[in-house]
Nucleic acid binder design. Structure first.
Length: 316
DNA sequence: AAGAAAGTCAACCGCCCACGT
DNA sequence: AACGTGGGCGGTTGACTTTCT
């Protein structure tokens, strides 16, 4: 570990005393001793007034650094480990509503920090926007999230709930049959599901943060390389519009798979959304109803068809 | 086996705003 | 009103790990 001692320049508005205090401040990764010092001080004196806290605690850190370390790592209610399927779904939904308002999104994911959610978005979601060669804020990408990723996430939530007592292969079967109107054709999807379902343990990286192999968003869009390599986008999934009347029977509201608090938060968020007039994905108060609007799926299918026609025309 | 590339995440930076004086 | 200060926020960096070739 490289524990650097760095001369830190003056922040805006810093006075002469602070200039002296700011000299020889530590930067970089926190040591166990520093963590203990900070936790101990906050336990006795509480948080806030971070600059004076840093001084009084004897930490050679900026107040900001102390605050960040406390909020993102040391706080007792910080949840570490897998970002669950439900949390991923919530992040996608809330980001569609609020954009990069990470702290606001984090308020709806108890124990998660804005930094963690931001990192999740940048490393997992934006990566796939790149693969799609489209802007993360584009309508195409948002439609893809809404019509492809989110339904598939819900499917996986359902599969995880139903498959908690079933074998991996049964879970795959469940994945394939749970929605007869949206059948993944790309075998990579199923292979991925087999691989991931059979991998019961989570991979843990060096930072101690677990990334669930089952819940990772990547699994929901392994067909994107096809899209970006000019393979017919219809291969991503099929929608049998003629049998759309079966949808109501075959689909279950995803809300029921959220834990109670999250469901309430979603409802609150939906109410909040209703008060906003900006165009968003969910034009109503009921998240599940809108998520599972088959007419929307049909709409996207038409969009994809149009896109393909345009692409073909361009090629010709 | 080794180097390159990609992925991950803690930590930092700079801007901004609220509040006190 | 103007200024100083603390703190919150989103964007970015870079160290480290994992995966790929």
């Amino acid at each position: 570990m490289d524990h650097r001692h760095v001369k830190v320049g003056l922040s805006r508005g810093a006075n002469k005393n602070e200039e002296e205090d700011n000299m020889d401040l530590r930067r970089g990764p926190w040591t166990v001793e520093e963590d203990f010092t900070l936790m101990n001080y906050i336990a006795h004196h509480g948080e806030g007034r971070w600059n004076s806290l840093a001084r009084c605690a004897g930490l050679k850190r900026t107040g900001k650094s102390c605050r960040l370390r406390w909020l993102n790592y040391l706080r007792p209610d910080v949840r570490r480990g897998n970002i669950t399927l439900e949390e991923q779904l919530l992040i996608l939904e809330l980001h569609s509503r609020w954009g990069n308002r990470w702290s606001k999104i984090a308020q709806h994911l108890p124990g998660r920090t804005d930094n963690e959610i931001k990192n999740y978005w940048r490393t997992r979601v934006q990566k796939h926007a790149k693969q799609l060669k489209c802007d993360v804020n584009s309508k195409q990408f948002k439609d893809t999230m809404r019509y492809l990723w989110m339904p598939r996430l819900v499917e996986r939530i359902q599969a995880a709930a139903a498959g908690s007592t079933s074998t991996a292969s049964e879970q795959v079967l469940h994945h394939q049959t749970i929605n007869p109107n949206m059948v993944p054709i790309d075998h990579n999807i199923n292979n991925t599901a087999v691989t991931n379902s059979s991998t019961a343990t989570s991979s843990e990286n060096s930072y101690g943060t677990q990334v669930s192999p089952v819940s990772d968003l990547t699994d929901c869009c392994y067909n994107y390389p096809q899209v970006s390599s000019n393979v017919n986008q219809q291969d991503c999934f099929q929608v049998n519009h003629q049998s759309s009347t079966q949808i109501g029977e075959s689909l279950t509201s995803p809300t029921g798979y959220f834990h109670h608090a999250t469901a309430l938060e979603l409802q609150a968020a939906a109410m909040d959304h209703q008060q906003n007039t900006s165009t968003q994905w969910m034009d109503g108060g009921n998240f599940s109803d809108n998520l599972w609007n088959i007419e929307d799926m049909w709409f996207l299918q038409q969009q994809l068809n149009n896109n393909n026609n345009n692409n073909n025309n361009n090629v010709i």
